[in-house]
Write a protein that binds this DNA or RNA. Structure first.
Length: 592
RNA sequence: GGAGUCGUAGUUCAGUUUGGUUAGAACGCCUGACUGUCACUCAGGAGGUCGCGAGUUCGAGUCUCGUCGAUUCCGCCA
């Protein structure tokens, strides 16, 4: 098809081009027909330029008014200075006096208006994703994403990293998330799995001596979705040999420095803060604390000062080795209604209820537990938390494993309800010293807290032979999470590189030697041929880009995201397949 | 797997509390008028399986149950 090709794009023309004859290709974004004069906003990825059609040319005008939104046209004309400029448009000082145009393609009336402030619902936008992506807000996200790709390639290349592709069809492994399975035609009844991460491959690359590996890779996990979780997502995956945790931190921090410098023009301070897992839980009730909250709202453990308080609820908690802890909300109007809301909130988290101490502006103290604890204890708590008039203290008591996370959640809720989050901040934080295992009551066994290739810290190695639950759960791992503004942005560890240690870990999680050999034999075998000490980390690419775009959901930084039930609404997948295909695979569908 | 919210014109919503005449508005679409708009303006018009299926009722957009889809949270996500 022959057509007049563009000489410029729709975002670049300005006063300096006045007088030139140019051609633009693009989509009709908006038509304004004033009867004697016709204005058309022409849109492409780069911007919008106004076309003007005069009625002097009757034929041109008559065909111009027939244009509909989203028609694709090629328009040729002269760049002229506008009579009335539009200061909101980069091209707002000029317009194109059209001498001729051709329709390259017509468009049906779109199901929703393509406009920046889109009004259509999420599912409609997903169904017509190609229309949604004509909006600059979405295009800009994808452009920013592309810029981050380039920083990854460039930054890691400069440090001698090799980008190496790893297989998408791999072996299904136990542990961790549910695998997406792919049936094999050649080997009927056998299955590949899509990678949850290229974990074993990158470790094998280290054994091979490739030394520094990085990859922007797709990962797949068949678990339920959230706003920041898709069934397929992208990671920046890296691994290095002959390194310690500090080396991984350094290379990672440099990367984020460069991203923030190039994308946001912000110098983020390095090194990042480091906090142990235990501190994070006990101080913020979370292993991914948001440090942007005004006044910090740290959790204070007050179990000690409430020994023998005489208040049955607290005494019982202390007898059963539970925890009493509190947070302080500074200088906020706390109403009866908001206390009720908070009570409902903690009940949903499995706590019986919440106690509070409210200090009025005049210093008067109200608390439903004052009559049980007495004035002295209340004063002690107030001074413990350094609370002042106008503040409110919330106190939770119960099972230690519930109290801290509940207070952590309450902290986030209060921060949101009372708008205490400083959105301008970027608070990076490493969390270290995670437990290596935790006991899964339902399955009656230990499971890896991070993943099962994580090296225990040296001083805990001897406990791998222990049979005591307390000792095994006390083992700390050489692993680390990167947290940014309350989001887990990445996770990594120094890996086990000795087959003996790896076997012990497999045994603790309940894999027999035979099963370990069957599932991970190749890795154990590789470790027998001179595996170097190695470690790495993987960062959530979608989450990173979402944060840079100021978005909470990762959906709008992905060109073709899935809905919350893991469907693609545009192409209607997943879907049934031909019987013939199933037959070839030896698969029959059972009715549940 | 569990809980919440939502589903009405092409789109975004109102109407559902308390069942009752012909289901409304805005944007979009169609027709006409208009020579400096940029949310153009003005006049007129078309457009509805109230997600789907049962039930209650003389009567259901409205009440009940089921189901499908979207979305948020819990479980889950090494």
């Amino acid at each position: 098809m022959n057509f007049n090709k563009r000489t410029h794009n729709c975002g670049e023309l300005n006063l300096s081009a006045v007088g030139e004859t140019i051609t633009l290709n693009g989509w009709v974004a908006k038509k304004r027909d004033l009867g004697g004069i016709l204005f058309i906003d022409l849109r492409d990825r780069y911007g919008i330029t106004q076309l003007k059609i005069n009625p002097d040319n009757k034929n041109l005008y008559d065909s111009g008014i027939k244009l509909g939104n989203e028609f694709v046209i090629s328009a040729t004309g002269k760049v002229i200075k506008r009579e009335s400029i539009n200061k909101y448009l980069p091209t707002g000082e000029i317009e194109i006096e059209v001498t001729n145009f051709e329709i390259l393609n017509e468009s049906e009336t779109p199901p929703f208006n393509v406009e920046e402030d889109v009004k259509a619902s999420d599912d409609l936008r997903l169904q017509y994703r190609y229309l949604d992506m004509r909006r600059h807000t979405l295009t800009d996200n994808l452009i920013l994403r592309n810029n981050v790709y380039h920083i990854v390639h460039e930054y890691f290349k400069n440090f001698g990293f090799l980008e190496i592709e790893t297989p998408i069809l791999m072996k299904s492994t136990p542990e961790g998330a549910r695998d997406y399975l792919v049936p094999s035609r050649v080997h009927k009844g056998k299955f590949y799995a899509l990678p949850q991460s290229p974990q074993t491959y990158k470790q094998i690359l280290m054994v091979a001596g490739l030394d520094k590996y990085v990859q922007i890779c797709k990962c797949f996990r068949d678990e339920d979705l959230r706003a920041d979780r898709q069934p397929e997502f992208t990671q920046i995956d890296l691994e290095m040999s002959f390194v310690t945790q500090e080396d991984i931190f350094q290379i990672s921090e440099g990367f984020f420095r460069q991203v923030w410098k190039e994308i946001m023009n912000i110098d983020i301070p390095t090194p990042f803060r480091i906090m142990t897992y235990n501190d994070a839980i006990q101080t913020y009730g979370s292993d991914k604390p948001d440090l942007r909250i005004k006044g910090e709202m740290k959790i204070h453990t007050i179990t000690e000062s409430l020994l023998n308080s005489g208040f049955k609820v607290f005494d019982d908690v202390i007898t059963s080795k539970g925890t009493i802890a509190a947070i302080k909300l500074e200088k906020q109007e706390v109403t009866r209604k908001s206390i009720d809301g908070i009570t409902d909130f903690v009940k949903k988290l499995g706590l019986g209820g919440i106690a509070y101490i409210k200090i009025a502006k005049d210093g008067a103290v109200t608390s439903p537990i004052q009559k049980f604890l007495g004035e002295e204890k209340i004063k002690e708590i107030i001074s413990n938390l350094q609370a002042e008039p106008g503040d409110t203290i919330f106190i939770l008591s119960g099972d230690t494993k519930k109290v801290y996370p509940a207070l952590g959640n309450l902290r986030l809720k209060l921060a949101e309800d009372f708008k205490l989050i400083d959105e301008s901040k970027y608070e990076f934080l490493w969390i270290i010293d995670f437990p290596l295992f935790h006991y899964e009551e339902e399955e009656n066994r230990y499971v890896g807290e991070h993943h099962i290739f994580t090296m225990p810290k040296d001083e805990f190695l001897r406990l791998l032979d222990s049979t005591s639950r307390e000792e095994i759960e006390s083992i700390r791992a050489n692993c680390y999470d990167l947290v940014l503004n309350g989001t887990e942005l990445g996770s990594g560890s120094i890996r086990i590189h000795k087959p003996g240690i790896q076997k012990k870990v497999f045994n603790i999680i309940g894999l027999t030697d035979e099963e370990a050999k069957e599932k991970f034999g190749f890795l154990l075998e590789a470790f027998q041929y001179g595996a170097p000490p190695h470690g790495g980390v993987a960062f959530g690419f979608d989450r990173l880009v979402a944060i840079l775009c100021g978005l909470k959901s990762i959906r709008d930084v992905i060109a073709f995201p899935k809905s919350v039930s893991a469907s693609s609404l545009m192409d209607n997948c997943p879907n049934i397949v031909e019987d013939k295909q199933l037959k070839e695979l030896g698969i029959s569908i059972t009715k549940s």
